[in-house]
Design a protein around this nucleic acid. Sequence first.
DNA 1: AAGAGAGACAACCGCTGTAGA
DNA 2: GTCTACAGCGGTTGTCTCTCT
Length: 261
Amino acid sequence: MKRKGAYENQEAVNRGPWSAEEDQILINYVHLHGEGKWGQISRRTGLKRGGKSCRLRWLNYLKPDIKRGNISSDEEDLIIRLHSLLGNRWSLIAGRLPGRTDNEIKNYWNTYLRKKVEEKHNDNNNNIPVELRMESSNAFGIAIDPAKSSEAVMCTEVMMATEAVNDSVNTKNLMSTNYIENPFASVPADHPEGLGKQFDLSELLMPQEGCDFNGYACVEIPPHFGEHSCRVNDAMCETWYDDWKNEDYFPLDYDMDFPLF
DNA sequence: AAGAGAGACAACCGCTGTAGA
DNA sequence: GTCTACAGCGGTTGTCTCTCT
């Protein structure tokens, strides 16, 4: 259902690549009026572009702090890690890569990184016994294959046992044992087995004091979830997956540094 | 040199969420 | 509560450039 106003007067709207003249009009407008009020640009400047198109052009191309040029290996690594955590939540991923836009990261993933990750996964898969190559499933029988998955099925949410959240001393039991068996099981809080509280991982991904940004998104459980500070990094999913796959359960411990994969 | 195919990336589209009237 | 406009997101498409034959 098309909403009125989104693309009205379509016949009067320019499409396709932006000209230098159009760019300059948009830049001048933003300098005068600031970001936002995109819908007013055509009325105020005569620019024959929809508000959405203007916003996109500014955010993805014209904004001064946009970093252009090749994505570094560090950035690439970070994208892979964040994608394994967050799935296709490009704006969240872009938020952790200063100067990079969600569109740029999405394009980079779709045209290059996805294949690279898949190839890496296939290589790894060929080196393990057939019986371990079988797709795993979580507590609800949902097949999980982290390297292939473009969705954040496995770890967009974190389960923490209620008692652990309420008991800052007993931090070793942060995860209910039910879910240590399968750390990728994301159990709804109202599920009969859902003893724990459920957090959206993006909520946990808060900048942390003293954490090197390129140190791969150290996160801290916000204080209102309990007094403990459980430091994790975004490698934990892979680590858990490997440990779980090898039936060597990962002992979640207080303030433990997780190894990078 | 020319055409085909692949890759890269800018831009568009459909949708949801939200604020304000 | 409803409607409208707008911001924002993610998926998809279009177009340009490069490489190969």
